[in-house]
Nucleic acid binder design. Structure first.
Lengths: 221, 221
DNA sequence: TGTTGATTAAATCAGATGATTAAATAATTT
DNA sequence: AAATTATTTAATCATCTGATTTAATCAACA
């Protein structure tokens, strides 16, 4: 009954699924590993690493706690899998666009504003989750985030430097990211006070898709 | 030996301190309660509520765990004391300036930019700590943050609405706060990759004291 | 059909953690 | 001096939590 520990790592990721009613929920079709990961995404993102209990994840997955360790060996390992995904999602998402040498500064700004806001609208907890986990445990992420050097040296930043030689391009880059990301970080504040409804907030974001590019272009004049 | 539980609440906050060498560290002069609170500020802010152990706080305070519960009854209660302080610090700090009916929009912007950046430079973990604790546990803070309604209905926001009638003033308010706060939230990302030195970051912030007002005024034209 | 792997349920473990208590001592107050 | 309060040390509790194990069941499948 006892298996070599390394075996855990090679548990197959997919299970042959029988034909099923289209009616049945998509989740049912997920492999067990994927069910755990999906549950982990939800719980980790909502509560953060320290406040998340492995039992929470098992419940959320509708599966058994023993099986979680059978697949992932530890809470820590499962977390790292999710965290790498999330860091990628937050930073790598815009990286190709920012490094496209065939688009102008303005085109990059337009595209990123619209698409980043849309992505974040679907994943509103993503920024604060990633950023607060990095703060809590900066050492762990030194490895994961070489991306940033990449983003900071992107074609986009070079274009900013050319356009406004008198100003540190990182300043403008921070403004751009900040105007896109900050609303999602501040959201819980307004929301917890019911000072702003969901509808109002979504309208705000929708407007931002065109407003942020306008403001950025003002700063480039 | 057993005391009524309510007694804990009324433990005196100050202890008569004898004359001491000026040489002696300031901390030595602090009352025990204040030592615990100072330790709690440090540890909670750095690691967040869930990852903080009461033993960490006692160590940091150089005092013993039993005494922590003697003074504060529970981790939860101590946390709430610190959290209220921090929320105040983050939001109430700028509230008087934003509600001053004798200053122009531009004057408010200039003052807040400089002073908020200076305050945050001294408390760089403050924004992400407060915002991520609110996200983790929004219910708890519904009571604490009536401030926001206050800030959202500030004189500053009214002035924004007058100046740019075509645009939701919350948009501009978000930009303002975002440009001031976001660098502190993004800091760990750049920093953990050593993509940016402390000196570079501080210079960036120093420049921002004058740059942010310039950008804000562009958006108001 | 029998074998194998996937999954569950349940119990258990060890260590962490928030909290409490008791007894002794130091410091302050009255 | 006596009484009260503050603080320490140390032990102890109950619970939580990540992890492991065992035995039984279920599904696939050859």
């Amino acid at each position: 009954m006892i298996k070599s520990k390394t075996l855990f790592i090679f548990v197959p990721s997919t299970i042959a699924t029988k034909e099923m009613d289209e009616q049945e929920k998509a989740e049912v079709n997920l492999s067990t590993e994927e069910k755990f990961k999906e549950a982990a995404r939800i719980v980790f993102t909502k509560k953060g690493y320290a406040a998340t209990k492995t039992r929470n994840i098992a419940e959320q997955a509708g599966l058994n706690l023993a099986l979680l360790n059978y697949y992932f060996r530890s809470k820590e390992k499962l977390f790292e899998i999710i965290m790498i995904e999330k860091v990628q999602q937050l930073f790598a998402f815009i990286s190709p666009a920012l490094n496209d040498t065939n688009t102008s500064l303005e085109e990059k700004i337009d595209w990123v504003a619209v698409n980043y806001i849309e992505m974040l609208t679907k994943n509103p907890d993503l920024p604060i989750f990633v950023l607060s986990e990095i703060r809590t445990n900066p050492e762990r992420f030194a490895k994961i985030i070489q991306l940033n050097t990449f983003v900071l040296k992107s074609h986009f930043v070079k274009q900013l430097a050319e356009r406004k030689p008198g100003i540190n391009p990182v300043q403008l880059f921070l403004n751009f990211l900040g105007m896109l990301i900050f609303p999602f970080i501040a959201k819980p504040v307004f929301h917890s006070t019911s000072a702003m409804s969901d509808d109002m907030f979504n309208q705000l974001l929708e407007d931002r898709k065109t407003l942020v590019p306008k403001w950025m272009k003002l700063m480039l004049e």
